[in-house]
């Protein structure tokens, strides 16, 4: 039902013999919010710059709205709004003037530009500050002005590079709500990059995990857990004394348990493919052992985050001895 609006195929960019983006293939559908997640230096910005035709890829191809952005960046930039992470405005011009300047760079007639700018400033909640010099804006205000700036050309796609960077939690919530609203009401495709999984998960239809130039997994959050951890989507950590072989054997026999990993003398991690905490506690009690704690660690975003964003390898944490 959904048509593809951004197609990336085997995209590679090599800087000084080191790949910044390594054979990236990705497609984004019209009208979705796609989150490109990854730690700093993963190649997110490089990918975005290539989408805008500001950097030439070493190999591979890119299509944005059916236009090749390497050969025809101007046409792509007419359809795509881009909010950079280190967003800057002309300090000595007011918010309104900055927007009108951007509009005139997009060949929008002055009168039309002004009405659009006023409407957008109202939409992002800056109607009281539109005549103030941007030099006096706060970081959050600048970010919202940036969003208005992106929207003034009425783009089909907006690309936001770290939109939540440096804004307080309340500001983040408002900004994300605004992005979601734009996506819903104007049917704008949104591609956003972030290293804040928690903030972004609430508005993204799909996310892609991007580490060291490679896309490791993509899909919605449940899909991701599934892709990354296979069937073992649940981990139950148990602290029990005494921990004898018989008990371990019994636990292993519970339906749904895949494997057990001993953490230390008294605690174990039980990997299973469904929620079986009650069965586990029951078994322990039947075996006359004392249960000190039982804790369900379902593999959610936290685990995904720690797994990738702290630079650990997938194999190290999931192999069970």
């Amino acid at each position: 039902m959904s048509e593809t609006i951004i197609t990336i195929e085997e995209l590679t960019k090599i800087y000084d013999d080191k790949p910044a983006v390594d054979r990236l293939s990705l497609s984004i559908n019209k009208g979705e919010v796609f989150g490109l997640l990854g730690p700093n230096g993963a190649g997110k910005s490089t990918t975005i710059f290539m989408l805008l035709g500001l950097i030439e890829p070493t190999s591979g191809s890119l299509q944005v709205c059916g236009i090749n952005s390497t050969n025809n960046p101007i046409e792509v930039k007419k359809l795509v709004g881009y909010l950079p992470d280190d967003l800057g405005f002309y300090q000595n011009m007011s918010g309104l003037e900055n927007l009108i300047y951007t509009a005139s760079l997009n060949s929008i007639p002055r009168k039309e530009a002004e009405t659009r700018a006023r409407r957008l400033l109202e939409q992002v909640g800056l109607e009281n500050a539109m005549d103030k010099k941007v030099g006096k804006y706060s970081r959050g205000m600048k970010q919202r002005l940036g969003l208005a700036d992106v929207l003034i050309k009425e783009p089909e796609i907006i690309i936001l590079d770290e939109p939540t960077l440096g804004i307080d939690p309340k500001g983040v919530q408002e900004l994300l709500k605004l992005i979601k609203k734009l996506n819903k009401e104007n049917n704008i495709t949104v591609l956003l990059s972030s290293h804040h999984l928690h903030q972004v998960q609430q508005i993204c239809d799909r996310v892609g995990i991007f580490v060291d130039g490679q896309l490791l997994a993509q899909g919605n959050v449940e899909d991701l857990a599934h892709q990354l951890f296979g069937e073992q989507s649940y981990v139950i950590s148990v602290e029990v004394k005494p921990l004898h072989e018989g008990l371990l054997h019994e636990l292993q026999n519970i339906f749904g348990v895949k494997s057990i990993k001993r953490v230390n003398d008294s605690s174990i991690d039980i990997y299973c493919n469904k929620e079986i905490t009650p069965e586990i506690s029951e078994t322990i009690v039947e075996q006359h052992a004392s249960l000190y704690s039982i804790n369900n660690k379902s593999y959610g975003l936290d685990e995904i985050y720690h797994l990738y964003f702290e630079g650990r390898e997938i194999d190290e944490t999931t192999t069970i001895p």
Partner: peptide, 13 residues
């Protein structure tokens, strides 16, 4: 000032 990236994101050679 970070305005160059914003400028270059507009359809301007």
């Amino acid at each position: 000032k970070g305005t160059l990236t914003r400028l270059m994101a507009q359809p301007v050679p």
